[in-house]
């Protein structure tokens, strides 16, 4: 089914659109403005597609920004080879359903070395399979602008990131010398080899993302919803035990319980939470009363102090 036929099958369009609150509609308008600005000013944009809920929202807004024109740039998924299998299935289904130009890149060096987050440590693994892989893919595509779904409310170091975030030719982020950003006027002027990371969802919060997914009926990976699933407890993290790539450590027992995931990445590095939230409404209730932050289950953010900032300096998204 192509995007166009999917559209024809939908009804109730005016009702759907009026369901967005003024607040969410303003966020959507802002994101559309940013998408169009990049498409108009840059020669080779690309959209980073990580298959998570934020990427799903980003993709949806991108379609809205250009409709009835198809999205005028490719999507890029940096696949570490260790993503949840449900994510890969969802990614390929989405690409088929929406007729997307999706490119997938895996770092050949890491793949050849058989790099594993379980054996080689999450820090080194992330450096090679995510940061280095991303740099390879951006260089190979000669992309001058890369959209990402990051939000400023995710992490302290993100709260200072610009919507147009300048990167040197070696993809480095100079947090202390960012370009001033006033009004909705984004400076996209760069020299050859330099690039800009663009974050259309900068001003969204996790709650805004869920309200939007609900109102717009955006498909997301099933792992976000609570279900009885097998897991093991490792270093205080709830690791999904559905995958044959996971080897149990001595003393570890496979358990079963109602769990879900607030963020999705590599299955061995993304911890789940105990939850009964089986619908989007349940999830919104859960977040409204939540006492932990969204990235709390992420092993890679906890490696060392200022962890996210350090990775971003090196070119991580």
């Amino acid at each position: 089914m192509t995007a166009a036929t999917a559209r024809l099958q939908r009804t109730d369009d005016s009702i759907r659109s009026s369901r967005l609150s003024p607040h969410i509609k303003a966020l959507e308008n802002e994101a559309i403005h940013i998408f169009r600005e990049v498409a108009a000013e840059f020669e080779r944009p690309v959209m980073l597609y990580s298959v998570g809920k934020d990427s799903s929202v980003l993709l949806h807004v991108a379609r809205k920004a250009f409709w009835p024109e198809p999205i005028p740039f490719p999507l890029l998924h940096v696949d570490t080879g260790w993503k949840f299998s449900q994510m890969i299935a969802f990614r390929d289904q989405t690409a088929r359903d929406l007729d997307l130009d999706l490119r997938v890149h895996t770092n050949p060096r890491g793949a050849a070395e058989g790099l594993s987050p379980l054996k080689h440590g999450s820090s080194y693994f992330t450096e090679v399979m995510k940061t280095e892989a991303l740099r390879q893919a951006l260089d190979a595509g000669r992309f001058d602008a890369a959209f990402g779904g990051a939000r400023r409310d995710e992490d302290a170091s993100r709260s200072k990131e610009r919507i147009f975030s300048f990167r040197s030719p070696d993809h480095r982020w100079d947090a202390r010398n960012q370009r001033p950003e006033l009004w909705n006027l984004y400076n996209g002027r760069i020299a050859r080899g330099e690039s800009v990371r663009v974050f259309p969802l900068s001003n969204w919060t996790e709650l805004d993302v869920w309200h939007y997914i609900k109102s717009e009926e955006i498909p997301i990976v099933d792992l976000y919803f609570a279900k009885r699933r097998p897991f093991v407890l490792r270093d205080g993290m709830i690791i999904l035990a559905e995958d044959e790539r996971l080897e149990l450590w001595p003393g570890e027992v496979r358990q079963e319980g109602s769990i879900r995931f607030r963020t999705l990445g590599c299955f061995a590095l993304s911890g789940g939470i105990f939850s009964e939230a089986a619908t989007i409404d349940d999830i919104i209730d859960e977040i409204t009363t939540a006492t932990v932050s969204e990235r709390q289950g992420r092993a890679i953010d906890r490696d060392e102090a200022g962890s996210m900032e350090k990775k971003k300096l090196e070119g991580y998204f």
Partner: peptide
């Protein structure tokens, strides 16, 4: 203070949202 450099210096360097 969002950036490690800021925490070390105890001053805010840039606009945070």
């Amino acid at each position: 203070d969002g950036l490690k450099a800021e925490q070390e210096q105890g001053i805010t360097i840039d606009v945070a949202y």
